[in-house]
Design a binder for these strands. Sequence first.
DNA 1: CGCTGCCCATGAAAGGTTTCACGTCCTGGC
DNA 2: GCCAGGACGTGAAACCTTTCATGGGCAGCG
Lengths: 333, 333
Amino acid sequence: MAKSEDLPRRATLKEVAKAAGVSLASASYAINGAGSVGEATREHILKVAAELGYRPNQSAKAMKTGKTGAIGLILPDLTNPFFPSLAQVVIQAARAHGYSVFLTDTEGSAEAEERAVNLMIDHGVDGVIWFPIADDGPVGKLIEGVPTVVLDRNLPGYDVIQADYADGGRLAAEHLLAAGHVNIGVISGPHAASSARQRAEAAISAVRERGNLVWHVHNAYSLDLEPEVTKALESRTATAVITGADLIAIGAMRHIRSMGLVVPDDVSVVGFDDIPWAQLHTPALTTIDMPVEDMAAAAVEALIRRMSARGEPRRRVVFNVELISRDSVRFLA
Amino acid sequence: MAKSEDLPRRATLKEVAKAAGVSLASASYAINGAGSVGEATREHILKVAAELGYRPNQSAKAMKTGKTGAIGLILPDLTNPFFPSLAQVVIQAARAHGYSVFLTDTEGSAEAEERAVNLMIDHGVDGVIWFPIADDGPVGKLIEGVPTVVLDRNLPGYDVIQADYADGGRLAAEHLLAAGHVNIGVISGPHAASSARQRAEAAISAVRERGNLVWHVHNAYSLDLEPEVTKALESRTATAVITGADLIAIGAMRHIRSMGLVVPDDVSVVGFDDIPWAQLHTPALTTIDMPVEDMAAAAVEALIRRMSARGEPRRRVVFNVELISRDSVRFLA
DNA sequence: CGCTGCCCATGAAAGGTTTCACGTCCTGGC
DNA sequence: GCCAGGACGTGAAACCTTTCATGGGCAGCG
């Protein structure tokens, strides 16, 4: 590689205009395909611009138009494999529309979320896709004024993309009941997340209908289990457990194994999310699949619509979920 | 949430200045802590600014200063669990320095990489952290002029952050040899990546010294194995295989299992990277750990230095790697 | 008491772009 | 052969900030 010339300064529009022998305005119109420019002139300007390697200065453009061409993506935790796939699709979809994405990871903490969002807004994003950490929190305020679509939570006033969590919870419960399980435990996600509550509530009411809910505990979206959870597991009262996330399911399976029991023979487990590990795990995890890619794409689409039509009524899109039956559930005779 | 007021227009510096009864210049100086402003005036201006909820317009600032406060992070594939951890640390470290990060995923394709980089540069980043897909490719050109640090590859002319791949390869081989293995196969990463070549070469030469290299094939950084690779595995000539990445190792173990064999009893496997799955897998994967977090932090640090001191000679930092012995290697009597 | 010099504070330019309002020239209709 | 109007092109303002060059006032020194 050549050593970087210290001043390969990029050509400015003014220079292009001069080189092409036209006015600044014409150059701008030609390059943006707006205004009225004769066919020949336009081509000439374009040619000159190409020769000079002209690249519009986005900062200047942003200053005039107020649009930066960037969107923000606020995610709780990249370390949870659920999110990278989401991020990947958002990034690709955004790029397809000419947007770059600012990604931020809020480390599961509300202050970090706040700092992150602040920084993002200061840096000027045209819109935000937000996967909230909790249902409340200070962040909503900050985002006000920036077109936003919310993932996972049904926050009032925002465009929302969700999966049918209640249905997922029900599906999981019914799968276990149909497999002959009666004594069922539930490890749901954090209290603060309404989506976690929905999964749990639906599962619980389905369990209660035809079976027996032996316990219900909470855990963060993490492999590491809280004492409350390990205690529940160690009570050995449940032959099957429904978890609020695959990560929790895997953590639970790990703990169950460490107790000297085997999944699914001694305890059955069902997850939620269908992260990539789910099928790689031994035993492969029975779980609820949600169409992450579709949801991510829908989020971008919704955001793009929202950015150009701020007045429209909010929309809420709910995606169907599906139970994927693998090897972590035992079918009792 | 209240319906978004359509025009909560953010206060401008001019407005702050007027409200505070000072000049534009004083306001700017006060807020940036530069120039000379009397203590009392400064405080007053700051107070007024806070009241008005003033937030500097970064686009305008960027236009003046040429600094956007954003850095770009170019990663091959978020779906490979190696990268999210990297991204997470980069994002956090960058934020700690007041930078937002544009993340882009190049989907493993060189054109996508090029498009992504273009978009990023257009959107104006002050610096780039780049994990190249291949050693060559057109992208280097684009990046010219933007301070850049390169991860993983020793690209001439750039600041470089690497791990000691050769040592990793050697460690893996010696571990297997010490465990009594003689016939060893190698599945290395893609040809195009010099880091993959280094790992493989070191492993191969160590194997050859005291054992027997039965085959050497290549595979993308993916769970899915190419025909060449499955054929090698099916030849059953190796009692142990060294892989260029944990993802490949896991793919290989899956295939080995599907052949009716068991890891490590029939075939031993060692990975590279120590991604989170490695220890969750059954059997837990013996692998080479590289300090991703440290490397990510070092990359940000190097970039920050480079951005403020463009002239300095390039630096190359090489991190040590370490073999983590788990359950995927059988110790022969 | 006058002057030098410092501390504060200010006006104005500059940075690259978009876009409004306007002018010129040519075409076509009558 | 005239005029209306369209097509094409242009000058200049505006976006919001940073920063240079400048100026006023006051303290302290000689």
